[in-house]
Amino acid sequence: MEKDINIIGFLCNWCSYAGADLTGLNRIIYPTNIKIVRIPCTGRMDPVLIMEAFHNGADGVLVSGCHPGDCHYTEGNYYWRRRHAVLKRLLEFLGIDERRFQATWVSASEGKRFAEVVKKVVDDVRSWKKNE
């Protein structure tokens, strides 16, 4: 059997990680393809870490943080939003499929949404892998 796709999720401790916990609390099922790494804030996300994930063989990367305005550190996600915009364009420029690198905002109360996000990312990455 072919190896299933493998996605790494960087979730900020205060909103998205808590949102993913809520998904569990609500017993909403999502695919096992995603493994979550807890980070303090999306502002901590050095693009080199995302590059490393791809370089080490991850099929997809998801980064999720607090909605703009809700950052626990007030501004961290705004810095991330800028870095993300640049990184995303550069990755696409180098021909890395846009489906493989995704970012979103999930709040601590959006348990249902987190499951939906994971399903979408898994579907996207799977469709990329199929055509690869």
Binding site: K3, N6, I8, K35, V37, I39, L49, E52, A53, H55, N56, G57, A58
Partner: peptide, 11 residues
């Protein structure tokens, strides 16, 4: 974080 990334990515 790099240790974690390596572990996951090598799945």
């Amino acid at each position: 974080l790099m240790e974690q990334i390596k572990v996951i990515s090598y799945c």
